Simulated assay, not measured.
Amino acid sequence: MTPYGRSIRKIGIVGCGVIGASWAAYYLSRGFDVTATDPAPGAQAKLRDLVEQAWPPLTRIGLAEGAALTRLSFDDDLAAALAGVDFVQENGPERVDVKRDLLARISAAIDQDVLIATSSSGIVISQIQSAAINPARVILGHPFNPPHLIPLVEVVAGQDTAPEAVAAALDFYERIGKKPIHIRREMKGHVANRLQAALWREAFYLLDQGVISVADLDTAIAHGPGLRWALLGPFLNLHLSGGDGGIGHLIDHLGPPIESWWQDLGQIALTPQVRAKAVAGVEAVLSGRSLAALTEARDEVLIDLLTLKAAQRPLP
């Protein structure tokens, strides 16, 4: 057994906002004991409310043996909350100073072989892990929102992270039903967020240039390439588009046009004017429909899609 290969039974959640609460719900659904902490006023009530909201869709997906809401506990004191935990998922504010302070306090409260995974969406681990006791066990475990439904977890090592810690984290996330990927080099925003950011940049540019409306642009993705992206990634989709010759044939024949599109992609800044166009466009699409209703509808379809994908022949 590696130094980080301990049996994991109890999860510590630090930070109980939307991401932390979603993580807590998922770990509970997998049959773990979960103990959480957050210094914000009313944090415990908010956490329990969010977990209860996530429980019906998790129940529909299927709960692990022994999964129960009663296995969630909360303590305002970080050290007390983390007593005896076997894995920590940190979800604090996206600030280097806050993350460093949290890692210092978390690592002082737990055994030195307990992995600490941060849910940071953009901060690189090497900026923050040195604040921890035994920084070799600090990794990135970045989920996608909402973590209780989306399987992807990005795992990244910092300059001080032990290879054994990365291996243990990848194994743990996979065993609990996630789809972890190993990002082999630190980059701001990691991988999936960078891919999203590339699309967002062109989306805002096209909106600002008057090329398309918010409604039509969202339709273009949701009812076009987004359907394929839910099944296969960009490279395998390109491979299929190449016919018998695959991706090599596609690059040979469509490479020059694709390169010309790249060169024509826009530069955009999120000015007040661009913000106003985006907000007005979204409000027009929603037409009074609440955020809660939209979220519920999205989650219903997402669960159906996940169920369908699990029941069919596995795709890469």
Rank of each mutant, 00 (worst) to 15 (best):
R184I: 08
A45W: 01
L270N: 09
G122K: 06
L103T: 01
P163S: 08
E300H: 10
L236F: 10
D304W: 04
I8W: 01
G281E: 06
Q44N: 08
H249N: 14
I258F: 12
G281K: 12
L50C: 06
H148I: 02
V156R: 01
I110L: 03
V279A: 14
G233H: 13
L140C: 14
R201Y: 07
L286R: 15
D264I: 07
Q112Y: 02
G210D: 09
Y205Q: 08
G248D: 14
L170K: 05
G92N: 03
E296K: 13
R275C: 14
S29V: 06
K178S: 11
M1G: 05
S120A: 09
R105Q: 13
Y205D: 14
G266S: 08
Q159N: 12
K46Y: 04
A108N: 06
T271M: 15
G158Y: 00
T59M: 09
A293L: 05
L82S: 12
A109V: 04
V285K: 14
L140Y: 01
A169Q: 01
G177Y: 07
A104Q: 12
T118E: 00
A280K: 14
W200I: 13
V282L: 15
L217S: 11
I251A: 14
L149Q: 13
G20F: 03
D101H: 01
S73R: 13
L270E: 12
A25H: 04
A104V: 00
I106Q: 09
W23N: 06
G288A: 05
V282M: 15
E296H: 08
G31W: 04
R30D: 07
D171T: 12
F235P: 06
E94W: 01
D218S: 07
G122L: 09
P135I: 04
I183M: 09
G141M: 00
A45C: 06
Q209F: 00
S73Y: 05
I19H: 05
M187W: 00
A203L: 11
A131Q: 05
V51D: 12
H249G: 07
K178Y: 10
T118Q: 00
L315T: 12
G224V: 10
R194S: 11
R9L: 04
R201T: 07
L69V: 07
R30W: 04
S73H: 11
L50Q: 14
T35P: 05
I176A: 03
A81C: 13
V211Y: 11
G242K: 10
K46V: 03
Y4W: 01
D33E: 15
A292H: 12
V14G: 02
A36I: 04
S119W: 00
A284M: 08
W200R: 11
H239R: 05
S260P: 03
P225K: 02
S119G: 07
D86K: 07
P41M: 02
L240E: 14
I123V: 09
L152M: 11
E300N: 13
G243D: 08
S119F: 04
T307D: 13
R105I: 02
D49C: 10
A83G: 10
R194V: 10
M1Y: 02
L72G: 13
G242S: 11
A284R: 12
G158K: 02
E300I: 13
W55S: 13
S7A: 15
L102T: 11
